Computed example of a mutant assay.
Amino acid sequence: MSTPTESREEAIKRLNERASDLEAATAPKTSEHLAAQAVTSQAYKIIAELIGGVLVGLGLGFIVDRFAGTTPWGIIGGTLLGFALSIYMARRTANRLMAQAKASGVEPKSIPFDDEEDEER
């Protein structure tokens, strides 16, 4: 099969179209997209604080059990302390994020409660 020959102008036009498509695909992201990424990263940070606090408490409780010989109590106490610490850290992070949002003038959106979904079932 032979490819049809195209004129130089058609080839340049096609090349320009492909270049503009590539430019549109690699254009900088909008501010809404960047804001959504920031919110997502903060949510992952809070989740990491919750999980990390419990795991650190669990590890410290295990170490206490190993050296003190108080087999179940170190792990139980360490897990509870780690959980309390992780809740405190997550709450502190959430309060800081709310203060930043209020300072920037962002109003939280209220989601109305919809009772109609429950009545249909």
Rank of each mutant, 00 (worst) to 15 (best):
D65T: 07
L15D: 08
I87M: 12
I51W: 09
L55R: 05
T3A: 07
E10C: 00
L55P: 02
L15V: 03
Y88D: 09
A101C: 02
Y88Q: 08
P112V: 02
A94R: 09
T79L: 13
D65F: 02
A19H: 03
G105A: 08
E120R: 08
E116H: 07
S2V: 05
A68I: 06
S41P: 00
T71K: 12
I87D: 01
R121M: 10
D65C: 09
M89K: 06
A11M: 14
V39F: 03
R66N: 13
T3L: 12
R14I: 00
S2D: 13
L97T: 09
A24Y: 07
I47K: 14
E6I: 01
E9M: 04
A35I: 02
N95I: 02
A90G: 14
G52S: 07
L55C: 09
L85R: 01
Y88A: 11
A24T: 11
L15G: 05
V54A: 15
F113T: 14
G69F: 04
V56L: 15
V56P: 06
E6P: 00
P28M: 08
R92V: 01
F83P: 01
I75L: 07
G82W: 04
K13E: 12
T26G: 01
E49L: 14
I51K: 11
G59V: 11
I46D: 11
L50C: 08
P112W: 02
Q42K: 10
V64R: 08
L60P: 13
L22Y: 09
F113L: 15
T40R: 14
P72Y: 03
R96F: 03
A101T: 10
R91E: 06
L60V: 15
S104P: 00
H33Q: 14
L55N: 06
A19M: 10
A19R: 10
N16E: 10
D114T: 03
M1V: 11
A94C: 00
H33T: 13
A36T: 07
A94T: 06
E6Y: 05
G82S: 03
A24M: 10
G61A: 05
P108L: 09
T30L: 07
T93H: 04
A103E: 14
G57Q: 12
D21E: 15
R96C: 00
W73F: 15
K29R: 15
R66W: 06
E17F: 01
G69I: 05
T71A: 12
L22H: 10
T40E: 15
G78V: 06
E116M: 01
L80G: 05
F62M: 13
E49F: 05
G59D: 03
L50V: 13
I76P: 00
A38T: 08
E119K: 14
K109H: 05
I63D: 09
S7D: 12
W73R: 13
D21M: 08
K45H: 08
D65H: 10
V106Y: 09
E9D: 14
A11C: 03
G82H: 04
A99C: 02
I46G: 12
A38E: 13
A35S: 09
P4Q: 11
A35H: 02
P4I: 05
E17L: 04
A90T: 06
G74A: 02
H33L: 07
D21C: 01
D65Q: 15
A99G: 10
E120C: 00
V54L: 15
M98K: 13
A43K: 10
D65A: 10
A48G: 11
R92L: 03
L60C: 15
Q100K: 15
A101F: 03
